[in-house]
Design a protein around this nucleic acid. Structure first.
Length: 235
DNA sequence: CACCAGGCAAGTA
DNA sequence: TACTTGCATGGT
């Protein structure tokens, strides 16, 4: 079976990447937040936005005692928009937070443990139905706030996998996610740390040059060609 | 100064 | 279905 062998090789390559990055960066304790609800808020605020800006917005919410479903439900949308302004797209995100909170209160009475108790496929569909929650935001909430074994992908994930020849340019979110989920054990800690490592790598090493030799993954690019041409000169 | 960040949805063809 | 555009602040 050629297919099975290929699957085995993919698994090994994905684990190798993880091993290298994990050894390089160590445990990143991703997504520090006081409670799951704060993570869900952060997941919405961080859409296409630098985390440093999101932190300012979350701090502003905390100062205003707004980090609870009830508080966010009661505050007027335009007032909320003013408070989360540093996170960018603030009108849009105020609207999205409001629609998420309405959903969260209606479906789970604002209880994150009630939300966790929901079976994964159903919860995923429900989240995806909320306006302003797309694939990545839904998966971030599922993995980090609800501890569900879902692999979160993003722009960095695609960039890195492309660069290492594991996917093609045409691969979309679901295809990339399937690559990880079909070849790795469904482990919440593994998935969480792996995604964190990918984002960290992207931020630190993939900024300017398309192939940065300082990247810990650089060894894979030169060493792993199946045939011919051994270059031993990369550092 | 230009460019981009841990996306998403609505509009167009 | 596939491509384009609006949304917006703050850091490099």
């Amino acid at each position: 079976m050629k297919k099975k062998q290929n699957a085995q090789e993919l698994r090994e390559r994905l684990l190798k990447i993880y091993e290298i990055l994990n050894g390089y960066f160590g445990d990143l304790h991703w997504w520090p937040a006081d409670h799951p609800f704060e993570m869900m808020v952060g997941a919405i605020l961080t859409q296409n936005t630098a985390w440093t800006n999101v932190e300012k917005a979350i701090e502003a919410l905390r100062r205003n005692r707004l980090l609870s479903p009830a508080a966010l439900f009661h505050i007027p949308e335009d007032e909320l928009a003013g408070i989360i302004r540093p996170s960018g797209y603030y009108h849009l995100k105020a609207q999205r937070l409001k629609s998420f909170v309405r959903f969260f209160l209606k479906e789970f009475s604002g209880s994150d443990s009630a939300m966790k108790a929901e079976p994964l496929p159903i919860l995923r569909d429900k989240l995806f139905d909320v306006r302003g929650i797309g694939l990545e935001t839904a998966d971030s909430i599922l993995l980090y706030a609800c501890q569900k074994p879902v692999f979160v992908c993003d722009a960095y994930t695609k960039r890195i996998l492309l660069r290492h020849g594991l996917i093609g340019e045409e691969a979309d979110y679901l295809a990339i996610q399937a690559l990880f989920m079909d070849h790795l054990p469904p482990d919440v800690s593994l998935f969480g740390q792996y995604h964190a490592l990918i984002v960290k790598t992207g931020k630190v090493f993939c900024r300017k040059e398309p192939r940065c030799s300082a990247c810990p993954l650089a060894v894979l690019r030169t060493a792993k060609r199946p045939s011919s041409r051994r270059k031993t000169t990369q550092s």
